[in-house]
Write a protein that binds this DNA or RNA. Structure first.
Lengths: 236, 236
DNA sequence: CCGGAAAAGATTGCATACGATTTTTGTGCA
DNA sequence: TGCACAAAAATCGTATGCAATCTTTTCCGG
């Protein structure tokens, strides 16, 4: 049983091929296999996934709605390169939404959910123990999956979709502006949140979540650098 | 100067023809000129706006992302017919987000913004005074625009987009499940919120917003009816 | 007169084609 | 060598065509 089934249960089953390509690309972006600024040409995506440009284009359009891809008229689609300001907005949004999600989840969490959380925490722990860039990427992804799992438990499909977008964009931001191993402390905070859920201490879960988000953002270096404009101009 | 310019400034200027069609259709849905469940065939939309099915399809895809349109594989697109459960989720989401938006707006509001709010309130008042279904539609729309204006003042593009979706879906929900003239009291609450903003009383703005949302939802009749399934089956 | 199967029609999913725009390459001139 | 400008290539925006799927109509047996 895959954790993705649990999280995306409602929305990935239906619809068409474009959705599958979107998911694939989203994973690649979130995993940092596709660097910010990378050009995603319709033709290339199409041949890569063995579909026509029509379908590739639809997938790119979806990603552009999620803010993971920026499209410029007559120029194409690029992996988003969020500015520090955008990064702040992402976290400001999460500060508004996620404590509430924690409360909602707290009120609905079942024993099965707790088990799923435990499994998720174990996986996080495994990646943290490992070394190397691959483990690092998996670690960021697993950390995001924790938040998505929480959102799915909260039982609000709309908020869940918002969180999917915010978590994906956060991964981008962390990849771009992250300083240290945020995840070591992040993991312990996740564990604490699950503890609060288990003991039905909703208020505490909410507080822990708020602090957790603060900690993630505090680990970022959001000072504007001289470089980005140039690097951006060079499509790099 | 149009209020839409103020609200959608960042996002409507760029991009393509599909966006214009989307905006047009969205207005029609929010204004209730297109009833929930109405079929939006690609061909019809295309000929209506004098574009090919390709472009029409893109516009419908956007609306489906916003939750205003539901698409079924090989069957087409229909104006969304939100269930009571979805309606609750919409308002639960707004309860999480909008008080925070009110606080953010409170911290950034300028004299020019206040003037825009006043103009908006005046317009609301005008429609409330008028009689007839057209005025009623305009009234719902104007009421939504107030919330969008607030979101634009808050200065967070991500939250602003979330609110665009939530307000649009709320309009649908109110059209479907609304009981009375919610707007009479809604208008006075809007006025109070602007008052709080003007006196920089952020905490009060937040509280007023929360109660305002509660009041809107309280005016809905979200009991499940026997009818909907049948009406839906009849495409009516 | 009614019910159900088969054909006709309509609509979507997807691929491909073509003009328009952008980017790159190549060439002549200072 | 360096730069300006034009040709070529690549890429996008959009229309259209065809197969697959769904809907509606027709027709026939009961």
């Amino acid at each position: 049983m895959n954790i993705a089934d649990h999280i995306y249960s409602t929305d990935s089953a239906n619809q068409d091929r474009a959705q599958a390509i979107r998911d694939n690309l989203r994973d690649a972006i979130v995993d940092r296999r596709l660097a910010p600024g990378t050009k995603l040409s319709e033709g290339e995506v199409g041949t890569l996934f063995d579909v026509s440009r029509t379908v590739a284009r639809a997938a790119l359009q979806m990603l552009s709605f999620e803010g993971l891809v920026r499209t410029e008229r007559n120029r194409g689609a690029f992996v988003a390169n969020p500015s520090p300001e955008e990064a702040r907005q992402v976290f400001a949004s999460r500060r508004l939404i996620e404590p509430g999600i924690a409360v909602a989840a707290c009120g609905r969490v079942t024993a099965a959910d707790i088990a799923a959380f435990r499994a998720q925490l174990d996986e996080e722990g495994r990646f943290i123990a490992e070394r190397g860039p691959t483990a690092r990427r998996s670690e960021i992804k697993a950390s995001g999956d924790f938040h998505l799992l929480l959102a799915s438990v909260a039982g609000n499909g709309i908020l869940q979709r918002f969180m999917e977008e915010l978590v994906a964009r956060s991964s981008l931001v962390i990849a771009l502006y992250g300083r240290s191993g945020v995840s070591a402390c992040g993991h312990s905070e996740h564990t604490k949140i699950v503890g609060a859920l288990e003991s039905s201490d909703c208020e505490r879960a909410s507080q822990l979540m708020l602090h957790h988000i603060d900690h993630i953002e505090a680990d970022l270096d959001l000072r504007v650098r001289a470089g980005p404009a140039l690097r951006e101009a060079l499509n790099f």
